[in-house]
Simulated assay, not measured.
Amino acid sequence: MSPQVPAPEPDFTPTDDVFVRKHLGVPDIDVADWALVVEGLVEHPLRLDMAAVLSLGTQRLAAFHECFGSPFAPDVPTRAVAQVEWAGVPLAAVLDRAVPGAGARHVWFEGADTGSFQGQDGVTYVKDLPLSVARGDVFLAHRMNGEPLRPEHGFPLRAVVPRMFGTNSVKWLTRVVLADRRPEGLFTTRLYNRVLPGESSPGPVREVDVSSKLFVPEEGAQLPSGEVELSGRAWSTTEVVSVEVSVDGGPWETAAVAPPGAGPTWQRFSLVRELAAGRHSIRCRARDLAGRVQPLAGARNAVHEVGVEVGGDGLKRRPG
């Protein structure tokens, strides 16, 4: 077990710095004309405008948010990750009003984004989850970091699925369908599937991998020689129990790791290290409570590495 540092308040990524992904463009939605439809195997189909959504109350969810990357290159690291404070309502509050039928096993999430993708026309972005998972984990967000959702982040309402890759957090949400089966579609059964270690057949891309990323210093940073704080963030589906840092391919050194927060948030790690003048490479790897460790190479969550230049010129360092 690595040494721990006190758990800070959740550090949120400025909205301007949160990554944006869109397969079918950003739809132009007038909230006055928008509604969330809940239908399928439910006893009480719903049509909720924004006033009805807001009447359910507003809760907050602090959570890390990670992009899986290209579905055509599932083993290539993207390292696109952020931490966001969402405001909205758990999907369970909506499902309780709709009352799922006895045969409902899956929940389909449909966005307003439609268009052409990979030579296929008339595509709508649809994802799905087992009902048991959707009822417990899915959050319907209408605010992000204290402000209304921006169009590129899913205005006026989006799904947020903690501890799962961002591809499952459908933006511009317009329709929730309860069904007895998974939907056949481009983004459900054709793309965003992978074979996990120890398994023989592909399954949908859902739960995140154990991962970590160096935030300070950044790639190409110029630093003064002497003691430098190496810091970053680590995350997984469960608690990250240790993070190690290696300089120039040397032995792995144990970093201090903040304990997990109250929700699905990332954990800060840091290590103070003496760096001599010259070029250095710095790597980090995390281990989680389930025993998973970041691989050195060949996977989308392979260890992160940055290169820095250290000199004796007193160049300014940024705090971690």
Rank of each mutant, 00 (worst) to 15 (best):
Q267L: 01
A262K: 06
P295N: 08
R190Y: 12
V228P: 01
E274P: 10
P251D: 15
H142Q: 11
P260R: 12
R150N: 03
E305C: 07
D288S: 02
V161C: 14
V89P: 00
R143I: 06
W86V: 08
V310D: 05
S201M: 14
T189C: 05
V42C: 04
Q118H: 13
L140P: 03
D17H: 13
A277M: 11
S212L: 03
K22S: 14
I29P: 03
A290H: 13
A255D: 03
W172K: 07
G291P: 06
T254I: 11
L196P: 10
V31F: 14
A277S: 14
L91V: 08
A141V: 09
V89N: 06
Q294K: 03
W108F: 09
V38F: 06
V42I: 09
A35I: 05
V177F: 06
R105M: 15
T265R: 00
V94C: 05
A98G: 04
G88T: 12
A262W: 05
G154E: 04
R190E: 15
A255N: 06
G226I: 02
A63N: 01
V195N: 05
V99W: 05
S55P: 04
S242L: 03
R97K: 14
A286I: 01
C284E: 04
N145V: 07
A35R: 14
A255R: 02
A179H: 01
P6E: 05
D180T: 06
F215G: 08
T114A: 13
P100D: 12
V81A: 14
P6W: 06
V310T: 01
Y192D: 03
H280F: 12
V216I: 10
V170L: 05
V177P: 02
V216F: 10
V205G: 02
P197S: 07
G185L: 02
V20P: 10
T254Q: 13
A102G: 10
W252G: 03
G278E: 05
L149I: 12
L54H: 15
R318C: 09
P259H: 06
L157H: 08
V177D: 03
A234N: 00
R279A: 13
W235Q: 02
V257M: 01
L275Q: 09
V243E: 03
T189F: 01
A290W: 13
R163C: 11
A73N: 11
R158A: 04
V89T: 14
L131Q: 09
V216A: 12
W34F: 08
M1I: 10
R175Q: 12
P260G: 07
L315G: 15
E85P: 04
P8S: 04
V306I: 10
G111C: 00
K213G: 07
V243Q: 05
V126K: 02
